[in-house]
Design a protein around this nucleic acid. Structure first.
Length: 352
DNA sequence: AAAATCTCCAACCGCACCCGT
DNA sequence: CACGGGTGCGGTTGGAGATTT
């Protein structure tokens, strides 16, 4: 027998909150503080589930929340923390003052995940696809070039925004696909005149480990081709290595991280310990943000013009202006790695 | 101009954990 | 120790606005 619901769902209001309802929550909290949310609806005169009240307060009404767009430093930190600990949004949010787990989760799902995919980085493993293919080439029984080429061919037949499907492991696709890597890359992005393997790989949609466990999850089948690891690369990165010097002084991550999953957590400990973010938010800004920023009453979100940054030009500007960013350094390292994989760099390489 | 599709994010759901009794 | 209510958390959904066809 399952647990009874926290309230009678049929008799409580659901959906978007009105300014009047928000005012009641704010008035209640200012008078009584937070706690015992199940009794809040009754005491505050709201026809809402207590859980819904708590969520509204936690995710939107709390005075310490930031409502402006994520800063580049915040984006970088989210990516780094996600690499270290995965989708533990509440832990990640704790390192981003003024952000909630819901904020971080939404931002990851709508922006960062897609951005990494477009850059050729698998947002699940945070590895460039090149490294994944390198590992792929060493899987027993499918290591010969012909099969690998056919597999690559198969994946190229899919549209970029589609998830990387298990089709990569099939060899039954039509064999009429004969474009070179350079042609494919330039077709995808005409501004690339001398595509690297990275550009080539950036075409590939991301692999979904849930849908296609054969590729990633059967770890014993995969034997890395070289001793390089991305965690070591990150540790050697000049920016991050400086941060590592202060690791234990800044955070007690043993407290944050569960003792289970020791190897992953050990890495997480290293990566997380380097995080050092300074709060840029101000409580005083909040009411200003609420008045000039966005609100979510009635018809959804109203932005102040700075909120959204969806176009590619802005992204390009950001990544060129935040010189030698986290991702840039990964790209540089990946190109270096590809010097060890010349066949993929040969313009005459034919995917057939 | 209208319809279709996409993007974004607030809100919801259900499970797990915490903690007081 | 067991139980039950409250809370935290991550995944998912619904729908409004934006963009594309």
């Amino acid at each position: 027998m399952g647990r009874p619901p926290c309230c009678d769902k049929s008799n409580v209001k659901r959906g978007l909150w009105t300014p009047e309802e928000d005012a009641k929550i704010l008035a209640y909290v200012s008078n009584h503080g937070i706690g015992n949310w199940t009794s809040v609806p009754k005491k505050a005169g709201l026809n809402r589930c207590g859980k819904s009240c708590r969520l509204r307060w936690t995710n939107y009404l709390r005075p310490d929340l930031k409502h402006e767009r994520f800063a580049p430093e915040e984006e970088e930190l989210i990516i780094k923390l996600h690499k270290a600990i995965g989708s533990r949004w509440s832990l990640i949010a704790k390192k981003l003052p003024g952000r909630t787990d819901n904020d971080v989760k939404n931002y990851w799902n709508t922006k960062l995940r897609k951005m990494l995919q477009k850059m050729g980085i698998d947002p699940v493993t945070h590895k460039p696809f090149s490294q994944i293919f390198s590992d792929f080439g060493n899987i027993s029984g499918i290591s010969n070039t012909g099969n690998l080429n056919k597999s690559l061919n198969s994946s190229l037949m899919s549209k970029p925004d589609h998830q990387f499907s298990s089709a990569i492991l099939t060899t039954t696709e039509p064999s009429c696909f004969k474009k070179t890597m350079e042609e494919r890359v330039q077709e995808y992005n005409p501004t690339v005149t001398h595509p690297t393997s990275w550009d080539f790989l950036a075409q590939f949609p991301v692999h979904d480990t849930k849908q296609s466990p054969l590729f990633f999850n059967e770890a014993p089948l995969i034997t890395p081709t070289c001793t390089f690891t991305w965690s070591e690369f990150l540790l050697s990165d000049p920016v991050f290595s400086a941060e590592f010097q202060h690791q234990q002084e800044q955070y007690d991550f043993d407290e944050m991280l569960s003792p289970t999953n020791s190897s992953t957590m050990a890495m997480a400990h290293n990566d997380l310990s380097s995080c050092n973010i300074t709060s840029t938010g101000s409580d005083d800004d909040w009411y200003l943000n609420r008045s000039v920023g966005r609100s979510t009453y009635g018809h959804g979100t109203v932005n102040n013009g700075l909120e959204e940054n969806n176009n590619a030009a802005d992204h390009a500007a950001y990544y060129s202006s935040s010189a030698s960013s986290f991702v840039d350094r990964i790209l540089d390292k990946d190109r270096e790695l590809h010097s060890q994989f010349p066949p993929l760099l040969d313009p005459s390489f034919d995917y057939y």
